[in-house]
């Protein structure tokens, strides 16, 4: 069973949580939208936010990059220069720090995991192959089907948003349906399906850490491609490391910190850094050279 939350031992709110809360508030800063049951229509919505944050969330001030990517591919069938460039920029600067520090749906899963219920570790033989599912979701639902599927209307719906995305249901569907009786009237089987997906993910989050990020999120899959060479890197000083294994026990994503600290699964949450007794783990922006761990000198 993973031992988590050690970084909060002194009862203080962690730096990760502060950044997550600020980011969630920043990306969903249109508070009046929740009251009115309307979405923001200002010019900032031409810009993609780095996280999975539905543009139909009443508070959203920017556009969801996964929704925008599917729209560009599905409606216009052209190469999405703008969205891809934006995603690439976020990816090369931050890698999956976006998931660990900025994503509001990641925050929701983190908070649910704090509920004192038995915590489960998915067996390795199931966990490892299941991690590749998110790449399949990205390739199939977000890129290939919207790009190559031909429908009667010539417009392919955003399949990931329509059938899978729990962030859209939680951030957009639920508040809009609560605020607008007309929308409630037209909600049917599809909303039932999406609510079921959302409920399953939220329930699973109470026992398994970030199940959506680990297994299904296409945006996490995209940023994972940049994790090894992004500017923001985790670093392990092998001179200081005493091999106690505390970092690996604390890692909610089951990264082998001492072997592959910038693995694609690392969301840069900083839990390994917080529990390291010798300060061997650090993080920050690389100034140029690769952040290769320093090797112990031969005796």
């Amino acid at each position: 069973m993973p031992r988590v939350h050690r970084h909060r031992m002194r009862g203080r709110i962690s730096r990760q949580r502060v950044i997550q809360l600020l980011a969630a508030a920043l990306f969903n800063g249109y508070a009046a939208g929740f009251r009115k049951g309307r979405i923001f229509t200002g010019g900032s919505k031409a810009f993609c936010v780095p996280v999975l944050n539905c543009y139909s969330c009443p508070g959203a001030l920017g556009a969801c990059p996964i929704g925008a990517l599917q729209t560009a591919l599905g409606a216009k069938h052209h190469f999405p220069f703008y969205v891809l460039g934006t995603l690439m920029l976020f990816g090369v600067i931050l890698g999956r720090a976006v998931c660990g520090l900025l994503c509001p749906f990641g925050l929701v899963q983190d908070l649910l995991h704090k509920i004192p219920l038995p915590k489960l570790t998915v067996p390795r033989r199931l966990d490892r192959p299941a991690r590749y599912l998110k790449y399949l979701v990205l390739a199939l639902l977000v890129v290939l089907l919207p790009a190559f599927l031909v429908t009667d209307t010539g417009i392919v719906p955003p399949l990931f948003c329509k059938y899978l995305c729990p962030a859209g249901t939680l951030g957009g569907g639920v508040p809009l349906l609560l605020a607008d009786p007309n929308l409630r009237k037209v909600a049917g089987a599809l909303f039932g399906w999406k609510a079921l997906v959302l409920a399953a993910i939220l329930l699973a989050s109470m026992s398994v850490h970030r199940p959506f990020c680990k297994y299904l999120c296409p945006l996490g899959a995209f940023y994972a491609l940049f994790n090894r060479f992004s500017f923001f890197q985790m670093r392990l000083d092998e001179h200081k490391c005493v091999g106690c294994g505390k970092c690996e026990a604390a890692c909610p994503m089951q990264v082998e910190v001492t072997k592959d600290i910038n693995a694609p699964e690392c969301i840069r949450c900083g839990k390994c850094k917080a529990v390291c007794p010798t300060g061997a783990v650090s993080s920050g922006f690389a100034r140029g050279g690769a952040s290769r761990p320093a090797k112990k000198e031969a005796p």
Binding site: I39, F40, T41, G43, K45, A46, F47, C48, C54, Y55, S56, A60, G62, A63, C64, G67, A68, T71, A72, A75, K76, P80, F81, Y82, V83, L84, G85, T86, M88, L89, P157, P158, C161, K162, C165, G168, T169, G172, G173, L176, L177, L183, V186, A187, G188, L190, F191, W193, K194, A195
Partner: peptide
């Protein structure tokens, strides 16, 4: 890529989509 996208006014497509309630995204269909 971002520059090419701006030149092709792709940001306006993003804006157009993002300022309307996306019925698929919220599960209406």
């Amino acid at each position: 890529l971002i520059g090419i996208g701006f030149f092709r006014q792709e940001h306006l497509e993003v804006l157009q989509k993002a300022v309307r309630i996306c019925l698929e995204c919220i599960g209406i269909g």
